[in-house]
Amino acid sequence: MAGSQEAGSKVARHGGNLFTVLSATALIATEAFATAVAAGWALAGLLNLGDVGEYALMGLFSLAAAYVSFVYFRRAVRVEASLVV
């Protein structure tokens, strides 16, 4: 009986950790993409690159933001999985 309660608490704790990781990743990804788009817009305006240059920089910086978000998610999952409570 005690084993089933312990197993249930592990599942609940793991689900809570996953929710925390997903929530933090959503926050980081939103900030990274907003920064990428703003940086592309500002840099293109500063260098007078026009619309095509603006979209190209936004796309380039958004790829970097996607990579950063993916790396953050992988590391956060690894850290949460290694925690012993």
Rank of each mutant, 00 (worst) to 15 (best):
M1L: 12
G3A: 15
S4F: 15
Q5K: 14
Q5G: 08
Q5S: 14
Q5T: 10
Q5F: 15
Q5M: 14
E6D: 06
E6N: 14
E6F: 13
G8C: 04
G8W: 09
G8T: 01
G8D: 09
G8R: 08
K10G: 01
V11M: 06
V11Q: 07
A12I: 06
R13Y: 01
R13K: 00
R13S: 01
R13L: 05
R13N: 00
R13M: 02
R13A: 03
H14P: 00
H14V: 03
G15S: 04
G15E: 07
G15K: 04
L18A: 03
L18Y: 02
F19K: 06
T20I: 11
T20V: 09
V21Y: 08
S23E: 02
A26V: 09
A26N: 10
A26C: 13
A26K: 08
A26F: 04
A26R: 12
L27R: 07
L27Y: 12
A29S: 04
A29N: 12
A29K: 05
T30Q: 04
E31C: 13
A32F: 03
F33I: 14
F33Q: 11
F33Y: 03
T35W: 11
A36D: 03
A39G: 05
A39K: 11
G40R: 00
W41T: 10
W41L: 10
A42F: 12
L43E: 07
A44I: 02
A44E: 00
A44Q: 02
A44C: 03
G45A: 06
G45M: 07
L46Y: 08
L46S: 05
L47F: 08
L47E: 05
N48S: 06
L49Q: 02
L49M: 09
L49G: 00
L49K: 03
G50M: 02
G50T: 00
G50N: 06
D51S: 07
D51H: 05
D51G: 03
V52P: 00
V52R: 08
V52N: 09
V52E: 12
G53I: 10
E54S: 12
E54Q: 13
E54R: 12
E54H: 07
Y55D: 09
A56D: 11
A56K: 08
L57M: 05
M58G: 12
G59D: 11
G59S: 13
G59C: 06
G59R: 07
L60R: 02
F61E: 03
F61D: 01
F61S: 06
F61Q: 05
S62I: 01
L63A: 00
L63R: 05
A64R: 01
A65G: 02
A66R: 09
Y67K: 08
Y67V: 01
Y67A: 12
V68F: 08
S69K: 11
F70C: 09
R74L: 14
R75I: 11
R75V: 12
R75L: 14
A76T: 14
A76E: 15
E80P: 07
A81T: 05
A81D: 15
S82F: 10
S82A: 15
L83Y: 15
L83F: 13
V84A: 15
V84N: 15
V85K: 15
